[in-house]
């Protein structure tokens, strides 16, 4: 889709929203211009270094840790039937645990701290990456595996030159799902267990019944989610250019 169509549509939606909210005059739904005002007041202020950056660091930290562990483990499990069998029941079970429920456990272990938030995010995001990596590593074509054996590839080149790229599309699909889960867990863990961060400010705005402020923080979360997703898609597009005929 052309970028100007995108922008035009978004502007159109904002204008409609402005008109409707002004007409409705409901305090819970402030017009976008008021939200923008609040955003201009909140985003570039001290909150940027005190809240926005820490939140981003937590999301990235947890997500990156989960990605590394998930890919490494996933590839190992995907290439070894026996290993996959040993972990099957444990992982099937662990991945269905709703991560918000474990926040009290992590809070008791790590206290109200950045570690708690990072661990919460990492625990929740590791599963999609791991399971997709397992799937991807398993899906290496048997003919390709035979070819690798015929040419007596070293173990490292088999893993990094064949298995990882072959699993690439699946791994990226997992990373995308993980990213959205990371944002959810960032908000939850910051609302209950942090003294800084976007989630914490959202909770504070709620406590102060500052509705435009709440909307401004929500809008920031949405914007961040959009930008992170776009960024990941751009990386994926480059990394997987070979897979698009």
């Amino acid at each position: 889709m052309r970028w100007w169509v995108r922008v035009a549509v978004l502007l159109g939606a904002l204008v409609v929203w402005q008109l409707v909210s002004v007409l409705a005059a409901n305090p819970y739904f402030p017009p976008p211009l008021r939200i923008l005002e609040a955003a201009a007041r909140l985003w570039p202020s001290a909150h940027f270094t005190a809240d926005v950056l820490p939140s981003l660091a937590r999301v990235f930290g947890g997500w990156a840790a989960a990605s590394v562990v998930g890919v490494a483990f996933g590839v190992a499990l995907g290439r070894s039937r026996a290993l996959a069998d040993y972990f099957e029941f444990v992982f099937t079970f662990l991945r269905t645990l709703p991560p918000p429920l474990l926040v009290p456990v992590f809070m008791l272990v790590f206290g109200i701290s950045t570690e708690m938030e990072v661990v919460t995010i990492a625990f929740g995001t590791v599963w999609p990456v791991l399971l997709n990596a397992v799937d991807g590593a398993r899906s290496v074509d048997p003919v390709l595996a035979d070819t690798a054996r015929v040419f007596r590839l070293s173990r490292a080149r088999w893993i990094f030159g064949v298995v990882l790229p072959a699993a690439g599309p699946k791994i990226f699909a997992g990373l995308r799902v993980s990213l959205s889960i990371a944002l959810i867990l960032m908000v939850i863990s910051e609302v209950v267990g942090a003294t800084s961060g976007i989630g914490y400010q959202l909770g504070t705005a709620q406590g102060a019944s500052d509705l435009p402020g709440m909307w401004a923080w929500i809008a920031l979360i949405s914007l961040l989610g959009y930008l992170l997703n776009r960024g990941l898609l751009a990386v994926e597009h480059r990394a997987l250019a070979w897979s698009r005929p």
Partner: peptide
């Protein structure tokens, strides 16, 4: 020893 397989599309590295 080298082998050329029938399924060329599956024995080449697409990346």
């Amino acid at each position: 020893l080298a082998v050329v397989f029938q399924d060329y599309s599956r024995s080449l590295l697409p990346w």
